[in-house]
């Protein structure tokens, strides 16, 4: 489904990703864990085509999309959920949901979105930046589901959210997964990660240093937490 081969990336002179290989099967939820500065966000940005200075290859559904531009990758089904939530001050909530084109075979209808995210219905006429952090996160997720994106690239969707909202994000991701959506998730919260994801990659200093499934993660928790610096 999504396969990354030999990916290296630089911020100016500094190398932030070193020869990363990973894959995510269709309908799988896979997390990228690692400390701040490990290269997780850069890796997601490389997959989306938003990071300029990179080498290596990104394959989607067997096609090499490395040379594709950002909007072409989105049209192929990549859904971008950035860590800053990407909300626009001049657009209302409703306009956020009509802005992107439909790119996949199963876009969520507005009714589905409003049923899953009731707050987005009641606040549909508000400028998106007036929403709470949690609501903005829901909007960012709703936007890519509305597009019918088949692969979600989510950068720390639970960051700064209350435990209740973290649960809600988890429910949405599980629901998307049940509908066959693939998710590559950057996540610092290991316990949350185990509730939504099938597998986990551990990234340190730009390299993949570990690969766990949910059964491993409990037996190797000490090892993992040491890597994460917790």
């Amino acid at each position: 489904m999504l396969r990354i081969e030999g990916l290296s990336a630089w911020h100016g002179e500094a190398q932030v990703l070193r020869d990363v290989d990973l894959f995510v099967e269709r309908g799988e939820v896979v997390t990228l864990c690692g400390r701040n500065g490990a290269g997780k966000t850069t890796l997601l940005r490389c997959v989306m085509g938003l990071h300029g200075n990179q080498t290596g290859a990104v394959h989607l559904d067997g096609d090499d999309i490395t040379a594709r531009k950002v909007h072409q990758r989105a049209r192929r089904g990549l859904g971008w959920v950035p860590d800053d939530r990407g909300a626009y001050a001049t657009l209302t909530v409703a306009e956020h949901l009509t802005l992107p084109p439909v790119v996949g075979p199963a876009p969520w209808s507005l009714e589905q979105v409003h049923e899953a995210f009731p707050a987005l219905y009641t606040r549909r006429a508000s400028p998106a930046t007036k929403l709470s952090g949690g609501e903005q996160q829901m909007l960012a997720l709703a936007r890519v589901l509305r597009m019918g994106a088949t692969v979600l690239l989510c950068d720390e969707p639970t960051e700064g959210l209350s435990p209740l909202l973290v649960q809600q994000v988890g429910e949405i991701l599980r629901r998307a997964k049940a509908l066959g959506v693939t998710v590559l998730l950057v996540e610092q919260n290991i316990h949350f990660a185990t509730t939504v994801a099938d597998r986990h990659y551990l990234l340190a200093e730009g390299r993949i240093v570990g690969h766990f499934d949910n059964t491993d993660i409990h037996s190797r928790e000490a090892d993992l937490l040491a890597h994460l610096g917790i």
Binding site: M48, L50, K69, A74, R75, W80, G86, Y88, L99, P101
Partner: peptide
């Protein structure tokens, strides 16, 4: 407001 986010939503 934010051009790269618009392109990431599939808009040229």
């Amino acid at each position: 407001e934010d051009r790269s986010m618009v392109t990431a939503l599939g808009i040229d």
